[in-house]
Nucleic acid binder design. Structure first.
Lengths: 337, 337
DNA sequence: TCTAAAAATGTCGACGTCGACAATGTGATG
DNA sequence: CATCACATTGTCGACGTCGACATTTTTAGA
């Protein structure tokens, strides 16, 4: 592999001058620059980042730790968003996942430290609170889709409350007042947040909430939950038109899909007999069900972008106050409402 | 950050001895090793990979190039499989994607070369033939979910033909003879392969193929295709019981899902009135539709594992003959058949 | 006990790059 | 034409590690 010295020899200058050209330093005569650049091109020289790093002690690498997020389809978008910014900043992205185990997490941190990464993004599959001590690893970090319990760590999360509000608001705007809510597992943070937003919108509109129409579509301990949205929806819908809901807000798109199957099994048409609103905007479902699903989009791509931005700001010493940043969840209107 | 010399000083040995301990070299007295290890632990010393690399000229980093694969949910499993092996081998994984553009691909290769990665996995979203010249970049490479047109490059792909065969075989085993096939976009390689497998199973069983029951569920130029599985399935199923198929094989799980909606819209029960077999085993769909979907699983995780294995073999100089390796697509039985 | 082989440890320098500083070239000014 | 400021280029060595080789210590056999 060619080194900076080979280039220097060919161009007839010192290696230091080549280094200056490569790094775009000022005060190079345009004639010299041209000669060096030609030599670089001719030799197909590519700088050795490792050597640079040994010298400068900055790696230009950002680490992304995921619990199992890189495994879960809906949050792959986070990675895309991060990558977008990382490559814009001419840095590289090292991805590792902990498999959700403490041992795995230890291994990952070690790898990152061996690489002397400049900063870390820590992403989780579910939006939830975690126990994260930023001082433990001594590497600038931004949390993604989660936030720190004790410490003050910058974090970027979806505004689930806002999303729940948007879903309910949409139902109300469409003139519905008989509104059911088939929720996520109540143990999940997103579940309560979305429900809060829902409740606020209902209160604002002065529409009473029918508690018996708020039922879990998923339940059980995390990690071994059961899906029961189909049964729940059937029970809600198996009633005379006058005494059943006219719209179902679903905790996520899978729940919404099961609700659609339930409606179909009862011969109810969507959206005329029963309207349905999903959550997450997981395209493979929301765009492919029949009819396509109106749903609240989780801004995963944007979350990735913002998280990367904030990390770079942190690295640049921009004194961004460490806070939890909540990104809005916009409603995507399709044919199910 | 602590260096090997700090450790050496604390342990009262030479830095070279510490290096030997760190790298597990033989011929170290257990007493010395213990002293060194204690010093390492006490100082929380972590080796500097960049420095090691400058010296040894091996980076311990594998690059994964994806076109947009890291974006697509179903093949995230590839990444998981790769990561499994990479971390087992104590290496790191650098992931980059080309966004599908030539410019992006160039950028990614440059990044990889700057990092002096040891080898590359090149993964694509769709199983298809690509134009890949292994000599161009001069880095050992294994193709994933694609294969090289001209050159002889090791590749790992799903055996779509085998999968099509498995689906048809399953239908036949269940006693069906009125078998319809709602296919992928015919322009896609997987589409023809799956269909070939289907045809072979039918021929072997001596069951004639009804050409009018083989209809595309997706069509249009790649990148701007339209989904029409729902309409296609309705047309197939909107007929008296005697003159309609008893089972539909779907080109993928999304198509299968649309077929299920079509069946429901006609008041047909699954699997009694009409059975349905999917393809891909994309869990978010296959496990959540009602009833859960019998489907042919794409072995993405295994593909990732094998690809990584072959790359390491290549790096170790094991003269694995460069061939396309096809991994089987097992049928997953659920309630839709 | 002595000797040779094997085991354990140390010394030195190079890997490719860039920071610190030195040296040279260039042009403007008086 | 001397002087000075500034632009341009070069020299040297260090970053942290490990390969090559040298030296010292231990072990085994006679």
């Amino acid at each position: 592999m060619q080194t900076i010295k080979d280039v220097a020899a060919l161009a007839g200058v010192s290696d230091r001058t080549v280094s200056r050209v490569v790094n775009g330093e000022p005060n190079i005569s345009s004639k010299t620059r041209a000669r060096v650049e030609e030599a670089i091109a001719r030799l197909n020289y590519i700088p050795n980042l490792a050597a640079r790093m040994v010298r400068t002690n900055r790696s230009g690498v950002i680490g992304l730790i995921t619990d199992v997020v890189s495994t879960t389809p809906n949050s792959v978008e986070i990675i895309r968003g991060v990558q977008e910014r990382v490559s814009q900043a001419n840095q590289s992205l090292l991805i590792a996942n902990t498999s959700g185990t403490a041992e795995g997490e230890k291994r990952v941190w070690r790898t990152f430290q061996e690489h002397r990464i400049d900063g870390v993004l820590f992403a989780t599959m579910y939006h939830h609170e975690i126990d994260f001590d930023p001082n433990m690893h001594n590497i600038p970090a931004v949390l993604v889709n989660c936030f720190a319990a004790r410490a003050n760590v910058p974090a970027v999360v979806p505004d689930d409350r806002d999303g729940g509000y948007a879903a309910a608001r949409h139902a109300l705007d469409k003139g519905h007042t008989s509104i059911a809510f088939v929720t996520l597992n109540p143990l999940i943070l997103a579940s309560s947040l979305r429900r809060e937003g829902f409740a606020r919108a209902m209160a604002e509109a002065g529409v009473p909430i029918r508690e018996e129409w708020i039922v879990p579509g998923i339940s059980g301990a995390i990690g071994s939950e059961t899906m029961q949205a189909y049964a729940a929806a059937r029970q809600l819908l198996d009633a005379p038109a006058a005494s059943r809901p006219t719209i179902i807000l679903a905790g996520n798109d899978e729940i919404a899909m099961q609700c659609m199957f339930a409606a179909a099994s009862l011969g109810l048409g969507i959206p005329n007999d029963i309207a349905i609103v999903g959550f997450d905007d997981f395209r493979m479902i929301s765009e492919q069900v029949v009819p396509p699903l109106t749903t609240v989009a989780l801004p995963y791509y944007q979350i990735g972008v913002r998280a990367a931005d904030r990390l770079f700001a942190l690295l640049a010493g921009a004194d961004e106050q460490p806070t939890v940043e909540r990104l809005p969840c916009p409603l995507v209107q399709r044919a199910s409402t």
